[in-house]
Write a protein that binds this DNA or RNA. Structure first.
Length: 512
RNA sequence: GCUCCUGUGGUGUAGUUCGGUCCAUCAUACCGGGUUUUCAUCCCGGCGACCCGGGUUCAAAUCCCGGCAGGAGCACCA
């Protein structure tokens, strides 16, 4: 910096002479929200989120939901939920995933998609489009094996199928769709420049034969489009203006652009995000999770050890925290590693104000309160504690102390002086806690506790890496409702999963 | 190997288009302090970065060239 050597005044003087506008420039501030899209005027913004329904959504997918739906909100545009379910073999669709994804989309984004479509129900359109492109000589049927073609492609050579006449291609095409050719026996390719520097783009495959039945539409179709073709045709039909997706799909954009050029269509504006690794989870793919779930390694897609949207939701994450998180990351193409803590920190701030406080005693130990002079009393009366320290309007919890039986956690038990939160300074000796003073006198450590008249058995599952811990204890049973997220005193957030007929409470740990 | 993308504190992120009040934004983490009858929330303060090397220029995070590093694609998956 010039200013280092000559001082700011000097810089200012030079600027005054050469570039006076720079003097008025504002100091940089952090941009808030998503970067602007380029909008061609008169066009409504149309985006899409296109998952494969081979399982419900993972945390990674939630980025696509958030970014696309937020852009739709920002520009009063539309967002389409499109199921890219044209693979019946490698990543076959899971029937239950369609409705789960649709529901998760709405939960994550806070809005319903403007349109939901399934590629598998629009097969006629794709097959017709393919046939037309074959007729026009834009595509051709290639009967080489994959490895034969790869060898030719790498040396920029045309295969013998490439030069065949259109009539022959149509005949082969009819055989393909008629089921007369086995899987792998033929493929439809888009005719590109073989000199393209990127080998992946040369005469890329558009449709292939699959004789495996599709879980939804059965075995009506023998030829299925690949992602690049299906998506290219569908984006055009739906008038998609902006595609925002992971940068692993950059080559897909290039393939599709080549096709759009041949068809003289306008390719949507495309933006990318980089790869994200969540440090607290290992390498998971939807396929691998599905395998483990079906194998019984996990209790389900919402097992708290899994990086699925279902698991986050079950634990009590707010969808708002997910939205804030992804919006803040924005559209950087950098590959990044993120600790779950950064999502948790957002979540804490959001849910803290609505989370009532309750006392949960892990590993309870019973104590008996005695009066200042060591006497047992029949009735110690009651105390009232706020449900939330900052919001008195949320009401109070009234504890009946009865004859003075309470629980504290074994972890907190120690003989000596201690403050029972919101109640009294006591001296613990054996199984008794002698009241020294109801007033808080000095800086004794404070522990939480519960009156045995106001508590009930509870257990809480906590996921730790790939393990599940089951913690048992007693929870304060004032107005505990299933589905509610609580802040457990001195512990952190947990959600009430259910309450059994006997009143026993089952909790699931959220985070600290 | 080929093709492509990306490099700003511990982790993320703004600023890079169009060089200049940028000795670099904000958050999180961490450290210290305050509020609080929770180890939560909240408030204040601190810490800490332009991948490296050249070049252009009065002036480079920003432009150019060359390295290096990380990642993705090179599927008849999405």
């Amino acid at each position: 910096m010039l200013a280092n050597e000559f001082g700011l005044e000097h810089v200012r003087e030079i600027l005054k002479l050469t570039n006076p506008e720079a003097l008025n420039r504002e100091k940089q501030k952090k941009r808030i929200g998503l970067p602007d899209l380029e909008i061609s005027k008169g066009n409504n913004v149309i985006l899409r989120f296109a998952p494969n329904p081979n399982g419900p959504l993972s945390i990674g997918h939630s980025r696509g939901v958030v970014i696309n739906s937020e852009y739709a909100k920002k520009y009063s545009g539309k967002v389409i939920l499109r199921f890219d379910d044209t693979d019946t073999k490698v990543k076959p669709p899971l029937e239950s995933a369609y409705s789960m994804i649709e529901e998760e989309f709405e939960w994550i984004s806070g809005v319903k998609p403007d349109l939901v479509i399934r590629a598998s129900s629009r097969m006629e359109i794709y097959l017709e489009a393919a046939e037309e492109m074959i007729s026009r000589g834009i595509c051709y049927v290639c009967r080489c094996t994959a490895s034969e073609f790869k060898a030719l492609r790498d040396s920029k050579e045309a295969c013998i199928c490439r030069g065949r006449r259109v009539e022959q291609n149509i005949l082969d095409w009819k055989m393909m769709i008629g089921g007369e050719i086995d899987e792998g026996g033929a493929v439809v390719r888009v005719k590109t420049d073989l000199e393209l520097p990127n080998p992946a783009l040369r005469d890329w495959p558009a449709l292939r034969i699959q004789h495996t039945a599709h879980p939804i539409v059965g075995n009506r179709y023998k030829v299925w489009p690949l992602l690049d073709f299906q998506s290219a045709v569908e984006d055009h039909l739906q008038g998609v203006t902006h595609i925002v997706r992971g940068k692993d799909l950059m080559d897909s954009t290039r393939k599709q652009t080549l096709l759009y050029e041949l068809l003289e269509w306008d390719y949507p504006q495309t933006l990318y995000w980089g790869r994200v690794k969540l440090l607290d989870f290992g390498g998971f793919s939807t396929s691998s999770i599905r395998k483990s779930v079906e194998n019984g390694d996990y209790s389900g897609w919402d097992d708290p050890r899994l990086p699925t949207v279902a698991a986050l939701r079950r634990r009590g994450f707010s969808s708002e925290s997910l939205r804030e998180f992804w919006i803040e990351l924005g559209l950087s193409q950098k590959d990044i590693s993120i600790p779950m803590q950064s999502i948790e920190s957002k979540n804490s701030k959001i849910i803290d104000k609505s989370s009532e406080r309750r006392s949960f005693i892990q590993g309870p130990r019973e104590l008996h309160i005695t009066s200042e002079n060591g006497d047992e009393i029949d009735n110690y009366g009651s105390i009232s504690i706020r449900r939330h320290p900052d919001y008195p309007e949320m009401g109070e919890r009234k504890w009946d102390l009865g004859d003075g039986s309470i629980f504290i956690s074994k972890n907190d038990y120690t003989e000596g002086l201690i403050r029972l939160k919101d109640f009294a300074d006591v001296e613990i000796k054996g199984d008794t806690a002698k009241i020294l003073s109801r007033e808080k006198n000095d800086s004794l450590p404070i522990i939480h506790w519960v009156s045995s008249k106001n508590c009930i058995e509870a257990d809480m599952i906590i996921s730790r890496g790939n393990e599940i811990d089951n913690v048992v204890g007693m929870i304060e049973n004032i107005d505990v409702k299933a589905g509610q997220t609580l802040q457990l005193e001195r512990m952190g957030f947990a959600k009430v999963e259910r309450i059994s007929d006997s009143g026993k409470v089952s909790l699931i740990w959220l985070h600290g």
